[in-house]
Amino acid sequence: MKSALLPERGAGDRMTAIFWRRPRVLLALLITPPLLWLGVVYIGSLAALLLQSFYSIDEFSGLVVHEFTLKTYIELLRPANFDIIRRTLLMSASVTLASAVLAFPIAYYAARYATGRWKAVFYLGVMLPLWSSYLVKVYAWKLILAKEGIITWVADGLGLGFLLDAALALPGVGGNSLSTSFLGTFIVFVYVWLPYMILPMQAALERVPKSMLEASADLGASSAQTFRTVILPLAMPGVVAGSIFTFSLTMGDYIIPQIIGTSARFIGLAVYQLQGTAGNLPLAAAFAVVPIIIMLIYLSLAKRAGAFDAL
């Protein structure tokens, strides 16, 4: 006669029994480390940062005055500083928009049509750039965009040099060469952050069943109407997720504008310089708070616009 119970096979079975009797134990074990990390290390340092931004710097001694004041935030509104914020915001918005436009067809293809091997090719193609160092890529782009670089060479070879010159002659974004213009900064930003837009978009589009698109066509919608009223709203959580990446990564980056572009500063660079050589930690902190505020505003606007309705 066989026993009703199977024999216990050691520690694994004992652990399983504990988890079965007390499911919360497993949950606690799983979420305690990330909770500590996010709660203490991340939120903690964020709070410390926020605190710093309410201090100010003594203009004569250059020492931090540990007294609560909004002086540092008012400092942000000075034309030189406000320009940095405006420039960064504009660049982040353009990079996000361009990434979204570029990413959509790729993500749509991957979600709708690619199967098996082609899906693997897609993932490889999107992820491959992430395998090499960010710095290597940025320096490679510096060479590509340089006046003696491959883009100029190809444009001249095709007799399209005038187009390049016209682009560089654009006021505000142009410059001496692509590698020393805002246009160049923009191109490299888009290149570097594009995968972060494609992947969430693809994940969101993957969740839209094909029958949904068929139903739309069946009810009389043209392709453009289906895109506007079905695909876009359903893909929106992915677009927003992707744009959070591209937007905040662009806002915080201080390497790309330093290597490619003009000498005009972006928030990331300003923070880097202020907390380093300038030793103005309060202003650096105040600058660092700006992207956080902008992201909060952006998310609440996106929520109000119904971007998360399909979640």
Partner: peptide, 17 residues
Amino acid sequence: NRRNVNTVFQDYALFPH
């Protein structure tokens, strides 16, 4: 979209948003 026929889909395909 130009055929005057309509379909009730097996999974209903209602728009969730």
